[in-house]
Design a protein around this nucleic acid. Structure first.
Lengths: 179, 179
DNA sequence: GCAATATACTAGGACATCCAAGGGTTTGGA
DNA sequence: TCCAAACCCTTGGATGTCCTAGTATATTGC
């Protein structure tokens, strides 16, 4: 990480927007830019913690998702939907996790199109250890005040719902589409 | 964008964290995951608007930065610092912008190590048009309530300062002043 | 003044993401 | 029944980000 800048570049961008007569959108521009930059900082922090485990964030997310599935296995398209990434990104992650012996592919019992991703014992162990590391080194020291965490969850939750990520109301339980 | 999920996957992840006895870090985990996902959604929206201009967000950011520099030119290392990306990312962006005739490289008048990035007239025009599009199609319809925008700017600003992005005090001080 | 150190940019490689396209499997309507 | 449409996964290509290393230029210190 380089030396801190003397001034906040996003605050400066906001001033530039206002100076050019775009005051009406200067604040949302600043908020959105701040989200982009914060994501970059958080991702770097997370990847730093995962590196000793030979994992990237994308691979960790898949591993963690599998570890929470009761059977330890999920169809690839389901993983793609839950992680909200493109199917090819899941293919990529599975390729590498499989090469590392952390997951394996198995055919779906009834649907010949579908491939199941299955956690190996090594994969389950590594997921546990990596989660413990993230919990203590990132999430427990997130850098956000407690009430700000709640604000973020609320604000970004509303945004994501409006963006079409999901459709439920806050707090309910049901598992859909068991085929 | 696929069909909305019936349930919020991040809220589910939070429940999983709590069920495994990690309640103390479940909320920060959810907040951080939400930031990652929100960034992904916003980036996709922005890139969609910029695509007709032949720009990506990375190239647009550089173009916009140059357009706010009085001389329309910046040293590459300065651009790297202000955009807070790795120098090689700037090299990459400049390569492509130069190929498109939007910027050009010129030697620094006094420092032989430094290369200046200069906006061409075409680059300046395109920056204006792209900014207008982003303002009306993204920032003016950000999907955040007005007071939530302020919250985001405050929360993420504090985070970025603590993370070492910059060192100045907030522009509009609500805290006791010390001059 | 000259060598050692620091700084600036670029080349090459690893990863991740998306899109477009292709081949196999299933489903559903004529 | 049967073929077209829908669905699932993978391959190949484009982009962006970072890291490491290498080259060139400046600055510093003796």
């Amino acid at each position: 990480m380089a030396t801190p800048l003397p001034r906040d570049p996003i605050a400066d961008a906001r001033l530039n927007w206002e100076r050019h007569g775009w005051s009406d959108v200067a604040a949302p521009m600043a908020a959105i830019t701040a989200i982009m930059r914060t994501q970059q900082l958080l991702l770097a922090r997370i990847e730093g913690v995962l590196k000793p485990f030979g994992l990237t964030f994308a691979r960790y997310e898949l591993l963690a998702l599998l570890s929470f599935a009761r059977s330890g296995a999920l169809p690839m398209n389901k993983a793609s939907a839950l992680l909200q990434v493109h199917p090819t990104s899941v293919t990529n992650a599975v390729d590498r996790l499989q090469q590392a012996g952390l997951v394996l592919r198995s055919p779906h019992p009834t649907d010949g199109r579908t491939t199941l991703i299955e956690l190996t014992p090594e994969g389950r162990t590594l997921a546990k250890r990596a989660t413990a590391a993230l919990n203590s080194e990132v999430f427990a020291q997130s850098g956000f005040a407690e009430q700000d965490v709640d604000q973020l969850i609320r604000i970004l939750g509303t945004f994501r719902r409006n963006a079409g990520d999901f459709s439920d109301e806050p707090a309910r339980a049901e598992w859909p589409d068991h085929h």
